[in-house]
Nucleic acid binder design. Structure first.
Lengths: 206, 206
DNA sequence: TTCTTGCTGTTAATCAATTCACAATTGCTT
DNA sequence: AAGCAATTGTGAATTGATTAACAGCAAGAA
């Protein structure tokens, strides 16, 4: 794991890897920066720069060895142990994401989902779905470190109050409520409403 | 509606307004930049600069008039007519967002939701939930211009292929698939997997 | 062998976003 | 009336992200 990678680079490395994992294996062992850039619709220089930052070097003619690159990205951004993730109050989106995390190459594992309503305890694939009232207990017992939080506003405060009493270290926060958590917890906010209003703005001016 | 606002400013203006709408009305008619900044955990200069960009000016002692500011933000970022939004394949998250759009102050209206599975046609609040197979028809009939797309990978291509044959102008894309759409459609990607891997990275180094 | 081609690695340039810092203003206090 | 205190509006500085540009290299063609 490399220190001091820019946040956006970390995100892109994740994208590179995922794209490469799905890359038709055919006989292709290598890929050029501009080819990968084209697949991801980004600038080739960006890729070369990102790979430079993690010290991965390609062949001047053949390009980048795909398997080695996948491995190197893992070394750069994955943590050593597997981290468990929980989805709190997010139905279909979790489902849309889940398949990837059942692949071999990932250090993240979806360990539980929670709902504020309905099913008190059901299975979804191999992931158990609990009622929200069991959240704290399960987060602790399962040693979950990352959560995706997408519950209605009215729940947000109480739930985040419980989360800080667990071992959770990171929250992807889709509630439009600003969470009051200690510094040891890393929060990434995403405000759907603001994004929609931005979308509205740029579809009417641009 | 103002041209040439930076994207991030547009997003923040949306956040400012929403925060102000929920601001305890008490007797407070005015708010200072640092007070609002504190509520949103951002830098006060940021707020002053954003408001400068939309030509809103405050009182050197009282601060910003809340109602006027709300109105001005509307003039700056809202489009004139109401725009309709659809949620495609996103259950709870849509629910978590929906309440806001039933407020008076918004130009966006959730007009439909679609599911890839289960309920062929049910109601959620006043919003009808259709089966995905009716999507194109409904998008056209309802004149929907914005969609939030969060279906499993395997559906993404086919669905985006249908979307481009409607009047949709903007897509908030939560599928990790790069959509191939013409330039007239504004796409904002959000890759949950990449965000989670970033979260994992920064909870293990920082 | 020598030339051409096309790629990587990397520095430099550009562009965008954020924050600093302070002049100007004006109510309030004395 | 004069000085203090607090706030806005904004130019300048800083930080960060992206893109351009090209030297250096090596395979393959001539």
């Amino acid at each position: 794991m490399i220190k001091d990678l820019p946040p956006n680079t970390v995100e892109r490395l994740s994208l590179y890897r995922r794209r490469l994992l799905n890359y038709p294996n055919e006989d292709k062992l290598y890929i050029h920066s501009h080819k990968l850039a084209h697949l991801l619709k980004i600038n080739p220089a960006h890729i070369r720069r990102d790979l430079m930052l993690i010290g991965f070097t390609g062949d001047v003619h053949k390009g980048y060895n795909i398997q080695n690159l996948i491995d190197k990205i893992g070394k750069a951004i994955d943590c050593k142990h597997t981290q468990k993730v929980a989805f709190i109050g997010i139905g279909d989106l979790g489902r849309a994401v889940a398949d990837h995390f059942n692949q071999k190459e990932t250090k993240l594992k979806i360990a539980a989902t929670f709902r504020t309503s309905k099913p008190p305890k059901t299975q979804f694939q191999e992931v158990t779905c609990y009622h929200i009232s069991d959240m704290k207990k399960v987060l602790i017992k399962e040693n979950i470190e990352l959560v995706v939080l997408a519950v209605p506003r009215s729940y947000a405060k109480a739930i985040s109050g419980e989360i800080i009493r667990t071992k959770v270290k990171g929250i992807l926060n889709f509630t439009s409520v600003h969470l009051n958590v200690p510094d040891r917890i890393f929060v990434e906010d995403y405000d759907v409403i603001a994004k929609l209003e931005k979308l509205s703005f740029f579809t009417n001016t641009a």
